[in-house]
Design a protein around this nucleic acid. Sequence first.
DNA 1: TGTACATCAGTGAACGCGCGTTCACTGATGTAC
DNA 2: TGTACATCAGTGAACGCGCGTTCACTGATGTAC
Lengths: 244, 244
Amino acid sequence: MSAPRSARDRVRQELTREILDVARAHVARDGAGALSLRSIARELEMSPSALYRYFSSRDALLSALILDAYESLADGAERASAAAFDGADDAADAWPAVPRAMRAWAGAHPHEWGLVFGSPVPGYEAPQATVVPYTRLAAALVRPLVEAERNGRLPPFPGDGPAQALADTVQPVADALLPGLPTAIVAGALQAWATLVGLISLEIFGHWRNTVLEPDLLFERAVANLAGDLGLTPGVGRPTDRAS
Amino acid sequence: MSAPRSARDRVRQELTREILDVARAHVARDGAGALSLRSIARELEMSPSALYRYFSSRDALLSALILDAYESLADGAERASAAAFDGADDAADAWPAVPRAMRAWAGAHPHEWGLVFGSPVPGYEAPQATVVPYTRLAAALVRPLVEAERNGRLPPFPGDGPAQALADTVQPVADALLPGLPTAIVAGALQAWATLVGLISLEIFGHWRNTVLEPDLLFERAVANLAGDLGLTPGVGRPTDRAS
DNA sequence: TGTACATCAGTGAACGCGCGTTCACTGATGTAC
DNA sequence: TGTACATCAGTGAACGCGCGTTCACTGATGTAC
C-alpha cells in the first residue's frame, strides 16, 4: 500500500507530493482562503483539470494540507520529546522540549500554525483525521507529567481539591492522556496548553510587535513558570509516598 | 464633527452604520475573506458603486470593521472593569471581571474575535488605530494589579529576581501599563494575557470539542490560578512595607 | 422668499479578472493471454 | 516475445459565476446671494 508497485504509481505519488508542496507554498504566501487550483496548476505547468486526477476538489486538497500541517507539527513535537527523554535523567528536565518545538515549528511555518490554531476557514470543516496527530502532540507535551507521576516525583497537590464538576469537565483529557493524575493537574495541563498556544499565536500573529521585544525570553520564562505550576521541579526530585 | 449638521449628514451617518452592520453580519456568516462589496450592496438594495461614496475600497471597509471589533471588545472590558471596581473593596475581587468580559464578548462575536486574535487576513495590514483600543483592553485587565500595588497589597515577590534581559524585553509594557511594578509581575501579566487569549481562542475556534465539556468551569479555574500567580489574593489583603 | 449654482448620493452599464468544475478527447502505460 | 485490450494521466475548450472598480450620468439636497 505504501510501496509503489508500478512506475505509474511511483510517478503518481511523486506528483501528489509536488502538488501538496506547491499548495503549501501558496498557503504560506497568500493564506488558506486564497488557495486556488488554477494557480497551482499554472505553477506546475499542467492544466487545471489535471489536478482532479489527484484531488477530487479544492476542499479535498485543503483538507490534505491541513492534515499535513497537524502531522508535521506532531512529528516535530514527538522528535523533540524523544530526544529530551533520551538525555535526561529527570522528567522535569524534559518539560521545555515540546513547548520549544511547538514554537520553533510555528516560526518556521507561520501560516500552517494559523491553519491549526487560527480562526477556522469559513464554511469549512477540518477533517476528522486531525484528532490523531492532535492527540500525539498533546501526549508528547504531557509526557513529563506522566513520567513524573510514575516515578512518584509529583508533589502532592496542596489545598482544597477542585470540585467534582471540574473533574467531570476535563474527564476526556484525564482518561486519554493523564489517567490517575489529580484533577488539579489535568486542569493545570489544559491551562498550560492554552498558555503555550496563546503565547505562540500572539507572537506569530504579530501581537507582540513593539510590546514584547524578545519573545523567546518571555516564552522561556513562561515555560518555566508552567513547570512550577505543574509541580515539575527540575533536578533531583523528592519522591513522595503517593501511589504510583 | 460628531454632531451631524444637515439632514444629508444625518442620513449619511445612518447609512454608514447600516453598511457596517450588514458587513459585520456577513463576516459573522462567511468570514472576513469572503466579505464582498457586491453582496453588501445587494442586501441593502443599492448598486455596488454606491458603496464607494462611503468606503473608498473593500479594504477600507474591512479596516473599519476590524477597528470596530477592537473598540467593541475594549468597551465591554472597560464597562465590566468599572462595574467590578464600583462594588468591590478589594482590587483582587475585581480581577475576574475583565477575563469574563473578554470571554463573553468572544462568545457573542466569535468571528470578530477571530478578526482580532485569529490568523491575520492574508495580504492585509490591520489599521494602526487598533493600538488605542488594544491598550484600553490591556489596561482594564491589569488595573487590579495597579490598584493592589498602589494600596501596598501586592506581596513581595519571592525568589531570584528575573534577569535584566527579561526586564528589557517587557519594558514597553512596564512603561505603558505597569510602571513601577517588578519585572516578574509584568512578565506574569503578559503570560496571563496569553493564557486568556489561548483559552478563549481554543474554545471559540472549536478545539475544546469532546475534550473540555464545560469550558466555563476550566476558564474560571484558570482565572483563579492566574490571580494566585500574580499575587492577587482575594479578601482582606495584608499590606506590606513596600513603597506605594 | 426666491433664484442660480455647487455639492453630493446613487444609478447602471461596462471593464477585465480569476475562479471551480465538467466533458469529450488523445495518447501513453500497464495487463492478460 | 508479441498482440489486444483496459486503465489511467493529462489536455483544452467551455460553462457560469461573482468579484472590485471605473465612469459618465441623473436628480435631489444644500448654499450663497
